[in-house]
Design a protein around this nucleic acid. Sequence first.
DNA 1: TTGAAAGCGGTACCAC
DNA 2: GTGGTACCGCTTTCAA
Lengths: 335, 335
Amino acid sequence: MATLRDVARLAGVDPSTVSRVVNGDQDLVIKEETRQRILKAVETLGYRPNAIARSLRLQRTRTIGLLVPDICNPFFPEVIRGAEAVASEAGYHVIFGNTDDDPAKERRFIDTLLAARCDGLILATAMTRDQTIEYLSEQGLPFVLVNRYTLGTDHYVVTDNLQAGREAVAHLIELGHRRIAHLAGPLFTDTGLSRLQGYRTALREAGITFHSAYVEECDFKEASGYEGARRLLQLDPRPTAIFAANDLIAIGVYRAAAEAGLRIPDDLSVVGHNDIPAATYLHPQLTTIRVPLNEMGRSSARLLVELIERGEATETPVVLKTELVVRGSTAPPRE
Amino acid sequence: MATLRDVARLAGVDPSTVSRVVNGDQDLVIKEETRQRILKAVETLGYRPNAIARSLRLQRTRTIGLLVPDICNPFFPEVIRGAEAVASEAGYHVIFGNTDDDPAKERRFIDTLLAARCDGLILATAMTRDQTIEYLSEQGLPFVLVNRYTLGTDHYVVTDNLQAGREAVAHLIELGHRRIAHLAGPLFTDTGLSRLQGYRTALREAGITFHSAYVEECDFKEASGYEGARRLLQLDPRPTAIFAANDLIAIGVYRAAAEAGLRIPDDLSVVGHNDIPAATYLHPQLTTIRVPLNEMGRSSARLLVELIERGEATETPVVLKTELVVRGSTAPPRE
DNA sequence: TTGAAAGCGGTACCAC
DNA sequence: GTGGTACCGCTTTCAA
């Protein structure tokens, strides 16, 4: 592949001149004839600037990393697309990786990105007791948290999970439910924890006693929601409603309910969280909390780019609005 | 951030020696004492090799690109994970991008990757009349096609889509259906086209006349499946079964059927293709063609790495087996 | 308006 | 067993 020197030789000029033309610096004045000669040489050789060499020289790669727990959770593709759109508009490209919520994997991936001298990082993987934040701060790498919050930084894009959980459960209470269970997310995540707190808050406000037997901790996957729901549905008295910490867990509830011969919403009301596309594939469609997934990705990328280029972000943290979307999976209890 | 020279200075050795130690070349013998001194210097300075500089020197980035039409289609996250797993095991990292099946976007993304001097490319975006293949060949960049095939290369990982379509439709015919419609994928994709051919083949083999009114072209999304199904369900006589070119389209059929007051499978049988996780979220669960998504990703990465490192691939092309998975969405026609 | 040259951070060949 | 050094491809300061 042709280099700057090849072009220079062909055009009969110095490499530095080619560089000036190729980069199209407005301030520099280049004789039109020279410019044309260079442009022609570029054309004939099919010259393509080497971004690696450029990065080395400029100490800037225009690359950002994006860590997600699991791209197969439909929550994340939407976030990724949002982030990618903004990043690429700003001239950055995104390297992403799955951590499976495994700190060792996360660390390994970050080390790779550090070696690659990426310009910044978006993390959708924060844990409530997180070592990564400190590590990144030490390394001086700009980063932004998305979705999951943790202590140690002011740069994050989240929603109010406590409020969302409270609203979800308040909806069930308004319908007349009293025996409301919760399939919590992992309690090492801020999102899992806050939604649980929202659940407890709503119960307290309604004067309903909290029973720990009505809470099961799951990971954010369908299989785990299914397992948790099976346990909840064997309780006596059985809950008449379940608030699932995310939609995948809620999908697990559907499966467990079907197996137990319970109909939704007649025998069991279900509320999810996130409003992933699959929420409307279900029958009945899932009542859930709508989260602006794409906008989350966009905001986090916007924040990060600002952080990289200006050293500080103007509007941070960002707290996005969520909204309860009532569909067919919730109804008054029958009894 | 510390450099090789910093380490050398601190350890009182030459940069080249540090390089030898850091890269742990087995053939070279380094005095144990020197090695220890260097390792300690690396430690105290928190030295981290600069992958950019290394890439420039070695003319190799250990980076591969992965192009998908749309990461929000649940087909792709699984493929991506498979590819990522193999790639990272082999010491490569993956840069991925969405093309939305827009050739201009695809071209732009490839140019970025070319500038970044990535070592190779996996394309899940091939079209039946594709300019990209030729372009990449010109550029001399190793690449592998996955899922979608097109002319111009022997390096691809696919399934037999014609056979799968034929099997899906044969299943419906065996159940007694005669009025079978098809919601085809985009006919600029090999997958869309081949599944349509499979549909026609199965009809022909059963002596059923092909009616073009029974075929609607969709893109591979739920919304488009819904629209297509609405049109099909208004036909007179109405089809008693639909073969959808993928599961998302099938999900659209469910929605259209529900709106039309038709029950699945009593009033309408549905078969999909791919067996994405959501196929089992549906009620009834979707009869579909299982595609080894993860393995597709793995194979394609394996092929590409081989292509990059050895200049040729031993087992290529790869044609993976699919399998009809009969679930609750297909039954004999009632009439 | 253009050229010369140093240097970004490594690697590897050639000495000693 | 270790040091010296040229070079990967580009940018940028300084000089002419």
